[in-house]
Amino acid sequence: MTVLVEAHNVEARYGPVQALRGVGLVLREAEVVAVLGANGAGKTTLLRILCAALDPDQGSVKFLGRDIAGSSPDRLVRQGLAHVPEGREVFPLLTVRENLIAGAFVRRERAAIAADVDRMYGYFPSLRERRDQHAAVLSGGEQQMLAIARALMSRPRVLMLDEPSLGLAPALVKDIFALLRRINRESGVSILLVEQNARQALSISDRGYVLELGRIVLDDSSERLAANDDVRESYLGIRDKGVRGERRWRRKKRWR
């Protein structure tokens, strides 16, 4: 399968703090890939670098085989990379419909855009009900749906999401993730999902990376990651009791 996004040895620092230490990552066509990590692991920094909002201090990122150094998020959208930022960031004083139209800024075919707006209402029926209301008055879940729909309006080949589950009710998270999987199957868009909610992220992804303190410490298929003891313990909160009822702080994580 074609490689769409390829990060190689990416390093980033904020002053004295090193946020990423040599991260490599690959996203192929039609894949759903999860990047798991706790607060401060470097997830958001990684995503910002992948969409050219931030320049890495070292290493390189390629999108569709071309180095993105010196590019900018708006140019990458034109080439087919859409980004749903952390915290939703909808346009508060535009209506839901206008938000979607703004999402299609890089396209010009009016009829196709209108058809896509309808397609988004199909995916997210509650957006259709609220299409003429300002985005500011939507609930958090609806804003997240709007942010995803808005990103899809550019017809991307790659969709990157930064913690779409943040601040949402668990049932809603499940719905949104199931929908992401469905959109991936139907339209073939590759999805890179950066998440703390490991259980949900692994349930819809094909592969996953575990990011800890700026390093990729695990990289495997989602099934195997979900079965991995360390992931189970650190991210899924499941602890299989050992024979002698080992305590967590006694055990060494194998990846360190």
Binding site: C51, A53, S72, P73, D74, R75, V77, R78, A82, H83, V84, P85, E89, V90, F91, P92, L93, L94, E98, N99, I101, A102, G103, F105, V106, R108, R150, A151, M153, S154
Partner: peptide, 24 residues
């Protein structure tokens, strides 16, 4: 218009405008 909505979008949230491909 497309440009009109883009201007409003950029004025309300510059970062998000970049992320949807608007050359702010």
């Amino acid at each position: 218009t497309r440009i009109g909505i883009a201007i409003q979008a950029a004025s309300q949230n510059q970062l998000a405008a970049y992320y949807v491909g608007i050359p702010v």
